[in-house]
Amino acid sequence: MNRIDRRFNALKVAGRTGLIPFVTAGDPAPERAVDLMHALVDAGADIIELGVPFSDPMADGPVIQHASERAIAKGVGLVDVLAWVTAFRERDKDTPVVLMGYLNPVEIHGYQRFAAAAVTAGVDGVLLVDCPLEEAAVLAPLRKAGLKQILLAAPTTAPARMAQLCEAAEGFLYYVSFAGITGAGRLSTQDIATRVAELRSRAKAPVAVGFGVKDAQSAKAISEFADAVVIGSALVERLDGAKTAQDIAARVDDFLRPIRTALDAS
């Protein structure tokens, strides 16, 4: 069984809500990328979402775009990200890793070649933001190699399409909690609750909710009705400027621990 499915099964048995932090690979310090991944797990992460830096992150807000720019300026590319996952797996065989990014780096690397390298490195799934279901035929080699294709659903998604997404969902279905870019705006918990409840009753995979979750309070509100909570921009912002492994671990712990505690209290 894939690590993602295994993890969600374990969460279900334990009656816990999953915590999925997002970090941009190579930010704040490429040489500390693997330390950062371990720090996330130590602070309570159930699944790691690792952003592959891209020059034109159309669907992300300024915080993640700047993190991408900083990483790219330090020469970080897809090959480095795969190497870091390989190194992470030396000590952690269980925590699922999902690569999140845009299609062009994968396209240029080559779908076949990427699929093989990602599986060897220990990647479990991919979330390619600019590859909706309609264009997903190009990802066939990835699915064949065993990588889960994480799909997005949005408040704007029409009912007929939502049914398609629920049917095609694997790993987990990522519900973006408001119609906007990452890390901005306010969400109405009631609206999300209704939509997510419906999704969970129909989707063939657990439902994770993200976009705009920034602290223990907002995470806990969402944990009442979601299988997992994704936290991105707020964490990336918190990590900006950290240089040493200790500093990174301290900031991660400081940020994630209260969220973990809040989730487990629900």
Binding site: V129, D130, T156
Partner: peptide, 14 residues
């Protein structure tokens, strides 16, 4: 060509 966009844009494009 095609529609290589995030899910949030699929509805407005439709």
């Amino acid at each position: 060509g095609g529609q290589y966009v995030a899910e949030t844009l699929m509805a407005p494009l439709a």
